[in-house]
Structure formats: C-alpha cells, structure tokens
Design a protein around this nucleic acid. Structure first.
Lengths: 189, 189
DNA sequence: AATTAATTCGGACATCCGTCCTAATATCTC
DNA sequence: GAGATATTAGGACGGATGTCCGAATTAATT
C-alpha cells in the first residue's frame, strides 16, 4: 500500500538531498538513505540516475511555473506586476534558497548534458514568455521600450533575477544584495 | 628545463578540459593526458585536486577582471561604457563561450564548497564595484536612479549580464537571445 | 666526479559510484 | 487458498576516481 507513496518518497528525498548538498555531492545511496529505502528501489522505480533526476527537474519546473505565474497575476499595472515578481524572488531567496540552488545546479548540468538541456531551455523559454505577456504586452510602456523587443526585455528581466539571485546566494550574509533585486524596477520608472 | 613550464602546461590543460567538458565531467587523468604528463605530476605541483582548481579559478578571475576593466575604460558617457560592456559580453558568448561556462561552473561550485566561495564572492564584489565606479559614479544619471543605490544598480547590471548570458549558452541556437543583452541599456535611456 | 636535491614515472591503494541480479516477501487475481 | 504479479531486500559487479608511494631519472651543487 506504499506503492505510489514509495516512489514519491524517493522523489522527495532526492529533491531534499540535491537542494541541500548540491547535485555533485549527492549519490544514489544518499537519496536511498534519506528516503528510508534500499538502494535498488531507486532503479526499480526510475530506471537510472538520469531517470530519477529528470523527474526531480520536472517537479522543480512545475513549482517555478506555478509560483511565478501566481506572482505575475498579482497587481494591475506593469509596475505592480514587476514589484510582485521581485518580491516573489526576494522571498524565495530568503526562505527557500534550496529551490534557487536547485535551479542553478540543474541549469549548469543542462549546459553540458543534452538530456537535460531541453527541459531547462523550455523552462526559461516559458518564463520569459510569461513575463512578456503578463508584464510587457498590453500596457502602455514608456518610450524607452521602443528600441527593444518585448521578448528581449523579458529575457533580460529574467536574467537579471537569476544573476542577482546568484549573487545573493553566493554571499551568505548578502542581505544587502537583496536590495539589488529592487533595482530591476528601474526600467519602469 | 621544463620546470616552470610543466606546471603551466598542467594549468592550461586543466583550464581547457574544464571549459570544454565541464567541471563535473573532468578527471585528473583527463587533465594529465591533455597536458601530456603523468598523473602523479598533478599532485607534485598542486598537492590536490582542490589546489589545482584553485589556481585555475585564480587564472580565470584575473582574465575577467582584466578584460572587463578594459571594456569599461572605453567610451566616455555612462551610456557608451554600458554599450562597451554589453559588446564585450556578446563577443565573449559568441567567440569564447568556454570562458563563460567556466565562470558559471565555478560559481555553482562556490555555492556549496566553502573553499571556493570567497574567491568567487570577491570576484563578483570586485566586478560590481568596477561597474559602480566606472559607469554609475560621476556622470549625471537620470532621476530614475535616485531611488536605488549605485551599488544595487551595479549588482543588478552584473546579474543581468550573467543571467542573460546563461540563457544564451543554454540555447545553442540562441543568437536571438543575444539581443537581450542589449536590452540592459534600457536603464540609460 | 661525487653527492644531493628536484623532478618524472609507473603503479598500487582504498573508496565510492551506478548498475544489475537473485532471492525473499507482500499484494493481487481468480 | 493457490498461483501469478508486483514490490522489497541485500549484495555483488566492474569501473572510475583522488591520493599516495617507491624507484628511476635528471639537474644542481660542491
């Protein structure tokens, strides 16, 4: 009766291990132990390390798409939505840094492994599209925006979040850097 | 007579291997072979894997500090300097993506390993200071900048470069995304 | 030329890793 | 309840990795 539970427990354990210790520092044995399961169970349910990690990535992707979509649904004006997005990211970095590290780790993995590349590529594609549609589309933006396509601006906003977030994580007492996230809003003022 | 040459050759081989195949996919044996050297030589000259990688990181850091400093020395106005910085990054991503991947990889490493953390933390610290001093200090910036400290804006600009560059690398046919780098200049218009 | 130090070489080591295989146990079907 | 199926358990495997050691070779010093 633990059937579906078992694979879910493994998945959660994998998620926890990787987001706590980093992808490179986690072995399947670590995950099995964290899940309270015998090593061979991981292959029984997921076939291989790659199969397991693929599921973890999909789990993470769903979480990001859902939460960021929610954040972008708050507020009316582009300025408000941008603030909401910034606040989401600040909250994420402060209260759930593991989730951000997970994204960073897997993105790095996707730079070298073609197996994971499309998953992550699609994620950033979807996120930039979301930003483009929800923030940059219908509202009347300043004349500054004429020179750049909404797509390019959305990519840049997303990149600024990611790159600034990285600096926050890197500097463990970097609460000061958190303010840098606010500075993204400069393009709407 | 190869004395100093030998360690330099190892260093170069390590640099090449890591920037080509990714940190996680490189073994000391790979590096030794690339350098045309016996495995034990790596420990003779660098003591340990960590010691060798530390030197590679320092090499990379010097390169970034030097090149970005050069880019920021071109042009007079903040707008011009910003354009120069953007062009440097575009050129880097197009003609030397291995160097960017190296930065991404080691930054990820630094998130988990305290040994490398301070090295990378200092790099981003120095880079943001450079941006702050060379672009955001003396010139008369628009009134939009009143709301955010120059330090925060510099961090954000640096983050935008990094995060947008990551997206370019991730999408191998992402020449379109390269334009997103230009969009950073929106804050100066 | 003889002695000492520095470098190069080859291989062994212990350990960890992902994967696989077989037997035992539980669950389900009829 | 018997038989088939699905799950769990434990261990072995081949291979790869970082590290270390002793001998051979080369260079430096006297």
């Amino acid at each position: 009766m633990e059937g579906k539970n078992q694979s879910q427990r493994i998945l959660n354990a994998a998620y926890k291990c990787i987001s706590t210790k980093g992808y490179a520092n986690v072995s399947l044995r670590d995950i099995a132990e964290e899940a309270g399961v015998v090593l061979s169970q991981l292959h029984y349910y997921f076939g291989s390390k790659e199969g397991l990690f693929t599921e973890v990535i999909k789990m993470m992707i769903d979480k990001y798409l859902k939460e960021i979509n929610e954040a972008l649904s708050m507020g009316e004006t582009a300025k408000d939505k941008m603030l909401s997005l910034v606040n989401f990211f600040k909250d994420l970095l402060k209260n759930n840094p593991g989730l951000f590290k997970l994204l960073y780790d897997f993105t790095g993995l996707a730079m070298w492994s073609s197996s994971f590349n499309s998953l992550l590529k699609d994620l950033f594609n979807d996120l930039s599209k979301m930003i483009e549609e929800k923030i940059l589309s219908n509202s009347a933006l300043g004349e500054n925006f004429r020179n750049y396509s909404p797509r390019a601006v959305a990519r840049m906003i997303l990149g600024a979040m990611f790159g600034t977030g990285m600096q926050v994580i890197l500097d463990s007492n970097g609460n000061e850097i958190l303010d840098a996230l606010n500075a993204i809003q400069i393009i709407f003022e």
